[in-house]
C-alpha cells in the first residue's frame, strides 16, 4: 500500500519529537486527575451518607468526555495551524509541489497526521473513560457516538487549522486566526442564537426556535447532543442546555447528531478545498477584480 509521503514524514518527525509524548502525558494526567478527584468525592459522599448514587459514576464519564472534548478544541488548531505555513517558512512547500505530489496530497497528508495524533490521544485516554464500565450505564453504542462526535470535531478543527495555515503565511498569525475562528464557531454561534432567540421571545412571547439551525455548525452542541442522548437524566446536561436554549423540535431534534456531523463534515470539506486551492501555485483566479 502506498502511504502518503507527507503523512509518513510528519508521523516520523512527530514520533521522534518530544511534543507528542508531552501532549499525551499532560492530557491523560489531567483526565486521570479529574477522574480520581471525582471518585474520591463519591467515596467521601458514600462514607458520609452511607448511600451509593450510581448516577455519580455517569457524571464522571460526562466530565471526562467533556474535558477530552475541550482538549481536542485546544490541541488540534495548534497541531494544524503551522502545517502549510511551516512548509512555507522552511521553504519546502515549493519543493514538494515540483514533485508528483499534488496540492491535495500535501493537504490530506497534513490532515491525516493531525488525525493520527488525535486518534492516539483518544485511544490512550480510553482506560480512564472506561472506569465507568465498572459500574455500568454506558454501552458500546454510546462510546461509538462519542467517538463520532470527537472525530467530526477533530476533522473540523483540523481542517480549519489547515485552511488558516494555507491562507496566512506566518504560523503565529495562522494559529491565532484558527483559535479565533473556532471560538466564533463554538461561542459565537451560541451567543448569536441566544441573542436572536431573545428577540423572537420579545416579539412572539414564546420560545424562539428560528435560528437554532445555525448551531448545526457548532461542534460543542453536537457533543452535547451525543452525550444528552446517552444520559438525558443527568442534571449537568440540563444546565448546559440553558446555553443552547430549548432543544429544537421535530426532525432536526431527533437526528441532531447525524445532521450536525454531516454539516460539519461539509464545512471541513470546504475548508480543505480552500486549502488545496491556496496551496496550488497554478490556480486561476475564480474572479478578476
Amino acid at each position: 500500500m502506498k502511504i502518503n509521503p507527507v503523512y509518513r514524514q510528519e508521523s516520523r518527525v512527530s514520533a521522534r519529537s518530544f511534543r507528542l509524548p508531552l501532549i499525551i502525558l499532560s492530557c491523560n494526567s489531567l483526565l486521570a486527575l479529574v477522574a480520581l478527584l471525582d471518585m474520591y468525592s463519591m467515596v467521601t459522599q458514600v462514607k458520609a451518607t452511607a448511600e451509593i448514587q450510581y448516577s455519580s459514576f455517569l457524571s464522571l464519564y460526562i466530565f471526562g468526555a467533556a474535558i477530552e472534548f475541550a482538549m481536542l478544541l485546544l490541541i488540534v488548531p495548534a497541531l494544524t495551524a503551522g502545517s502549510i505555513s511551516g512548509e512555507r517558512e522552511r521553504q519546502t512547500l515549493n519543493l514538494l509541489l515540483t514533485t508528483r505530489m499534488t496540492p491535495a496530497d500535501i493537504v490530506l497528508g497534513k490532515l491525516m497526521s493531525c488525525l493520527s495524533t488525535v486518534f492516539l490521544l483518544v485511544v490512550s485516554s480510553f482506560p480512564i473513560l472506561a472506569l465507568v464500565f465498572v459500574y455500568g450505564g454506558v454501552t458500546g453504542k454510546d462510546i461509538v457516538l462519542l467517538l463520532i462526535s470527537f472525530g467530526s470535531t477533530a476533522l473540523l478543527a483540523g481542517s480549519m487549522g489547515i485552511c488558516c495555515s494555507s491562507v496566512f503565511k506566518r504560523t503565529t498569525i495562522a494559529t491565532a486566526v484558527s483559535y479565533c475562528a473556532l471560538a466564533v464557531l463554538v461561542l459565537g454561534t451560541l451567543a448569536l442564537r441566544r441573542f436572536t432567540a431573545s428577540f423572537q421571545v420579545q416579539e412572539s412571547g414564546g420560545a424562539g426556535q428560528g435560528t437554532t439551525w445555525m448551531l448545526l455548525v457548532n461542534p460543542a452542541v453536537s457533543f452535547l447532543a451525543a452525550i444528552k442522548g446517552q444520559l438525558s437524566n443527568v442534571r449537568r446536561i440540563t444546565v448546559l442546555e440553558m446555553w443552547t436554549g430549548n432543544a429544537p423540535a421535530g426532525l432536526l431534534a431527533r437526528w441532531w447528531l447525524g445532521i450536525s456531523t454531516a454539516v460539519q463534515t461539509a464545512l471541513s470539506a470546504l475548508c480543505l478545498w480552500i486549502a488545496v486551492r491556496r496551496v496550488n501555485p497554478r490556480r486561476r483566479r475564480l474572479w478578476r477584480g
Binding site: R8, Q9, R16, R90, L95, L96, T98, T99
Partner: peptide, 27 residues
C-alpha cells in the same frame, strides 16, 4: 525536471538518508 532553488529547503529534523527517501517517495 529537477529543481534546485536559491534556498536550501531542508527539513532540519530529518536525517540525510530520510530526507532523500522522502523525496524519492514523492516521485
Amino acid at each position: 525536471i529537477g529543481y534546485v532553488p536559491d534556498f536550501f529547503g531542508v527539513y532540519d529534523n530529518l536525517k540525510v538518508s530520510e530526507y532523500m527517501e522522502l523525496f524519492a517517495s514523492c516521485y
